[in-house]
Design a protein around this nucleic acid. Structure first.
Length: 293
DNA sequence: AGTAGGACCTGGTGGC
DNA sequence: TGCCACCAGGTCCTAC
């Protein structure tokens, strides 16, 4: 599941390989993965453009091209962008192939067909709905404790779904939401309005730390994530709660709990991430038992 | 504004 | 061994 650290790793890798090169042509193998414009137009329009820059916004990879066009890629759960020699045998799950100068190809491989490609005018990128409604970047210098406090001031509801909301904060997914809450000592069902200044400061530190640590390990490969060379990241061995249900907490030894929150598998330590009694009875009457487990 | 549930998809897994 | 139900999750959509 590519989240911010995985997409950032891909961006950095591809930047060293793609800058200054040209897209000779594109072949769309599964038309529904092209979100805009229609697939034939997409393929025709991208041909002949030079690659000027690579940017990441939330979980989107943005490839800036010449003549006022940008390619937006969302990998969703199983998407991969593979940079390979042209004579590499075809991938079974390739959904689009971009021919590049220099006998290379960029292949968009996506087992589950959830990923999306968009080709939009660079000048109108900011108003493109997918980008326009995104919240702040957690690794930007402007994302301070005060900024997080301001974001939280107008929010209610549980912390886990809030961290997954891309309009609240851009780039967190299921893995790093669980990891950040663990690191901050906050229960996933903790209500946003119940956070004290001390909690917000810890959460801020936790969000930045888990994302930066993961980037330094080239992301987490729980299932399908691969970098442009087809290699796994190695941060998943450093995860403290995600995918560790029933295993001992690394801090206190208590078995990690797994519950469903907002329809998502959610991992936490019932001892290190206690739900305050008041918040428990007010926001979620059944959760008091969960803190014991 | 929030919550829930369905839709989109396929591969892997566990039960029988 | 084979079959099948079910699960995984990012985002969008609808309904409440």
């Amino acid at each position: 599941m590519p989240e911010l650290p995985e997409v950032e790793t891909i961006r950095r890798d591809l930047e060293t390989k793609l800058l200054g090169h040209r897209v000779l042509g594109a072949q769309v193998l599964w038309e529904r993965e092209v979100g805009y414009p229609d697939a034939p137009t997409f393929a025709a329009e991208i041909a002949g453009r030079d690659i000027l820059a690579l940017e990441r916004r939330a979980k989107y990879l943005i490839v800036h091209l010449s003549e006022d066009a940008s390619l937006l890629v969302h990998l969703k759960m199983t998407g991969q962008l593979l940079y390979v020699p042209r004579d590499t045998p075809p991938h079974q799950h390739a959904r689009a192939v971009f021919a590049l100068d220099g006998d290379r190809e960029l292949r968009f491989v996506d087992i589950r067909k959830f990923g999306r490609l968009y080709l939009v005018p660079t000048g109108r990128l900011a108003e493109f709905a997918k980008v326009a409604n995104l919240g702040p970047e957690p690794l930007a210098a402007s994302f301070t404790v005060a900024a997080l406090r301001a974001l939280l001031a107008s929010r209610r509801g549980h912390m886990k779904p809030l961290l997954l909301n891309q309009e609240f904060l851009a780039g967190m997914g299921n893995i790093y939401a669980d990891e950040a809450l663990f690191r901050a000592g906050l229960h996933p069902l903790r209500s946003a309005e119940s956070l004290k200044p001390r909690d917000i400061a810890r959460l801020h530190e936790a969000i930045v730390a888990v994302l930066e640590e993961s980037i330094s390990h080239r992301g987490s490969s729980i299932n399908n994530y691969r970098d442009p060379a087809g290699q796994k990241g190695y941060h998943h061995v450093h995860l403290r709660v995600f995918n560790r249900a029933d295993e001992p907490c690394l801090l206190c030894g208590t078995p990690i709990s797994k519950i469903r929150v907002g329809g998502r598998g959610t991992h936490f330590c019932p001892r290190c991430q206690r739900l305050p009694r008041v918040a428990a009875s007010r926001s979620h009457p059944v959760t008091r038992g969960l803190t014991r487990s």
